[in-house]
């Protein structure tokens, strides 16, 4: 009865085994960052891929999750795990608030994309002047490795933690996919007016999607804060994470469970490859990365998942 979850669980189990086989911190660090981006992308994908609401400002959720976990610990002495949970909730609440404002105003398409971008910028500016977030100086979480402080001494533990987060997010998305909510979400994406005519409460569906989306991406931000322990406004709310989040989902395969994970792995590998081929000359590696990105779009317009499906046509029937 739960067999729709099985493929996700199998892949997660395989990924969980990696540290047992691979003894390289380089590889683990690579995977850890890739999974963090996949997590941010999974949040984006729920809203953008399934719901068709393209956001250019998911940094607003990423940064809020990151700052929440840092500020609650540093300023209020709250336990790291509790702060982490609060960060996720705050991301979801912020999603609801932004959704309530924008969806009720009927913003779609590029208008929605641009308004999210503006929200992220507003958050960035506020974080750069508000004493609570450390203003311009940023905020540093004291270094205290341990389970209770959610700072992992070994890279494997940090890796497993982000893998668990990603696993939960992917299972949520997979579960939504096969439920009525998933169908309603896709209906909203395909044709909002038709969905409304069929009795779908469009606003409610969108609000739920943006809340979940915000919570998932906030968890990626919270993980970032716990890993690097230092935040400033540009790191937490900068446009980079908004771009990364949508990039992983679109390159991997928009509106699919696997898209963000595959996209993050491929993009990270490409970036590394560019660095490798570009050598020590600053910039050359990223030029190659950009060129390969364009080629990927040219030859895999529906992402890596789409490419895989077109190579194995019989999978189409299962959608």
């Amino acid at each position: 009865m739960r067999d729709h979850l099985a493929p996700v669980l199998i892949v997660l189990a395989l990924l969980a085994g990696v540290p047992l086989v691979v003894d390289s911190n380089v590889v683990l660090n690579f995977l850890k960052v890739a999974l963090m981006l996949a997590l941010a992308g999974t949040g984006w994908n729920l809203l953008g891929g399934y719901g068709g609401q393209f956001s250019f400002g998911h940094a607003v959720f990423f940064g809020t999750g990151a700052y929440a976990v840092a500020v609650l610990q540093v300023r209020f002495g709250i336990n790291a795990w509790a702060a982490f949970g609060a960060g996720i909730v705050l991301g979801a609440v912020l999603g609801l608030a932004i959704g309530w404002l924008t969806f009720r105003a009927g913003l779609r398409g590029s208008y929605f994309a641009l308004v999210t971008l503006a929200f992220a910028e507003v958050a960035r500016i506020i974080a750069s002047v508000w004493p609570l977030t450390g203003a311009g100086a940023g905020i540093l979480i004291p270094l205290r490795e341990g389970f209770l402080t959610l700072q992992f001494g070994s890279r494997a533990e940090g890796y497993w933690f982000v893998l668990a987060l990603l696993g939960i997010a992917m299972l949520i998305v997979r579960a939504i996919e096969v439920r009525r909510f998933g169908a309603q979400l896709v209906a909203v994406r395909e044709n909002e007016d038709a969905a409304r005519a069929l009795g779908v409460d469009v606003l409610r569906v969108k609000l739920l999607a943006i809340a979940l989306s915000g919570g998932i991406t906030a968890s990626a931000g919270a993980f970032y804060a716990q890993t690097f322990l230092y935040l400033d406004a540009g790191l937490a709310y900068g446009p980079w994470i908004s771009v990364e989040a949508l990039l992983t989902a679109i390159v991997g395969g928009i509106g699919t469970v696997w898209g963000p994970l595959l996209g993050a792995l491929v993009l990270q590998a490409l970036s590394e490859l560019g660095k490798h081929l570009g050598g020590d000359a600053p910039g050359l590696g990223l030029v190659l990365f950009g060129a390969v990105l364009i080629l990927v779009v040219r030859f895999a317009p529906n992402g890596i998942v789409g490419l895989a499906r077109s190579l194995r046509p019989r999978r189409l029937a299962r959608g």
Binding site: V33, L235, Q268, S271, K275
Partner: peptide, 27 residues
């Protein structure tokens, strides 16, 4: 002093993946 204006230079940066397999890991 920290970065405050990341452009579209890819920020996410990674350690070596397959590309760096040639490195003397655990030498």
């Amino acid at each position: 002093m920290t970065s405050s204006v990341p452009g579209f230079g890819r920020r996410s940066v990674l350690a070596a993946g397959a590309a760096a397999a040639a490195l003397p890991l655990g030498a």
